[in-house]
Simulated scan of single mutants.
Amino acid sequence: MFDGNSGNYRQEVITNDGFWPDVDLMEFQKSRALPTNIDADFLADALLNTITEINGELTSVKNQHHAKGYHHAADVPGVQRNGRNALCAQYLKAVFARAKADLLGEYSSIVNRAPNSQQESPELRNRLLAESALVIRNMKGLKRATVRMI
Rank of each mutant, 00 (worst) to 15 (best):
D3S: 10
D3I: 09
G4W: 03
G4E: 05
S6R: 13
S6P: 01
G7I: 03
Y9M: 07
Y9Q: 09
R10D: 09
R10E: 13
Q11R: 12
I14N: 02
T15G: 04
D17A: 00
D17C: 04
G18W: 06
F19H: 04
F19T: 07
F19A: 01
W20T: 00
P21L: 05
D22F: 02
D22N: 10
D22Y: 02
M26P: 02
M26N: 11
E27R: 15
E27G: 08
F28N: 04
F28W: 04
R32A: 08
R32M: 15
R32Y: 12
A33G: 11
L34D: 07
T36P: 03
D39Y: 08
A40M: 04
D41F: 05
D45V: 04
A46Y: 07
A46E: 14
L47I: 06
L47F: 02
N49M: 11
T50W: 00
T50M: 01
T50A: 03
E53K: 13
E53N: 11
E53Y: 10
E57G: 06
E57R: 09
L58F: 05
L58D: 01
T59G: 11
S60K: 09
K62A: 07
Q64C: 09
A67S: 13
K68N: 08
G69L: 05
Y70L: 04
H71L: 14
H71I: 11
H72N: 12
H72D: 09
A74W: 07
A74E: 14
A74N: 13
V76P: 00
P77W: 02
P77L: 01
G78M: 04
V79P: 12
Q80P: 01
Q80C: 12
R81M: 14
R81F: 15
R81D: 08
G83K: 01
N85Y: 04
N85E: 02
A86P: 03
A89H: 10
A89F: 07
L92D: 02
K93W: 08
K93S: 14
A94Q: 02
V95Q: 00
A97S: 12
R98W: 06
R98N: 02
A99T: 12
A99K: 00
K100P: 02
K100E: 06
A101K: 02
D102G: 13
D102R: 11
D102F: 03
L103T: 07
L103Y: 00
L104T: 01
G105C: 02
E106W: 11
E106I: 06
S108F: 03
I110Y: 10
V111R: 07
N112G: 09
N112Y: 06
R113H: 11
R113L: 08
R113S: 15
R113N: 10
P115G: 10
P115V: 11
P115E: 09
Q119H: 13
E120W: 01
E120P: 00
S121G: 05
S121T: 06
E123L: 14
E123W: 08
E123G: 09
L124V: 15
L124C: 05
L124M: 12
R125W: 03
R125K: 15
N126K: 14
N126L: 13
N126I: 11
R127Q: 15
L129K: 07
A130Q: 15
E131L: 10
E131K: 04
A133L: 06
L134I: 09
L134P: 00
I136K: 06
I136E: 07
R137W: 03
N138K: 14
N138M: 10
M139H: 05
G141N: 02
L142M: 09
K143R: 14
R144T: 10
T146A: 13
T146N: 10
I150N: 12
I150P: 12
